[in-house]
Amino acid sequence: MDKFTRVSGAAAPMLRANVDTDVIIPIQRLVGTGRTGLGPYAFERMRYNKDGSDNPDFVLNLPQYRDSPILLAGPNFGCGSSREGAVWALMGMGFRAVLAPSFGDIFFNNCFQNGMLPIVLPEEVIGRIAAETEAAQGARHTVVDLARQVVVTPEGAEIPFAVDARKKEALLEGLDDIALTLRFKDRIDGWYAADRAARPWAWESVER
């Protein structure tokens, strides 16, 4: 997994509520494709005109936000489908952090699995970062510093944020979850042996 320590750049505002993972990446782009190469399809139904040209009204097409690593989002961002392709597509567009008042639960977990940092911040804080960024026409950057757990706004205010301690360590170190879990292999096997004895009904009919 990619490490995450600190990113800096213009924060792109897309503040509408309930942006679902179907909007982030249509399912048709995920049928038989891999984790990479999805960037051009992120938000494609909003991002392009019918003829395939860029929609100039779509905020992420504005020149100041084209290479933005930070997305400012609205409540319930990433709701809906469990498709991890939503994270892969956002990362393919260059995003490494998403700041929103709330997230869809599965999307939130999927972010951490890929070195993307989702941060929950109050709506007014996100609005402030958006306003400061817009006032500077994207010339002033927002910084997301995971080690210090602060977001530095374009005008220099430091906003602390909460992050799960376990996820923070995994992001900073780029840890492999499976290897970490398999350190508990004996306990996993022990749990099963005990449960097999206690709840034979849960296991007998699927054993071979």
Binding site: S82, G85, I106, N110, N114, D177, L182, I188
Partner: peptide
């Protein structure tokens, strides 16, 4: 509950998932 691709890989390899209790 539903999970993403990385969590699916994890559960197939370990039969477990690290989770926070909702």
């Amino acid at each position: 509950f539903g999970i993403g691709a990385s969590e699916l890989k994890h559960v197939l390899a370990t039969q477990t998932l690290p989770q926070r209790k909702p």
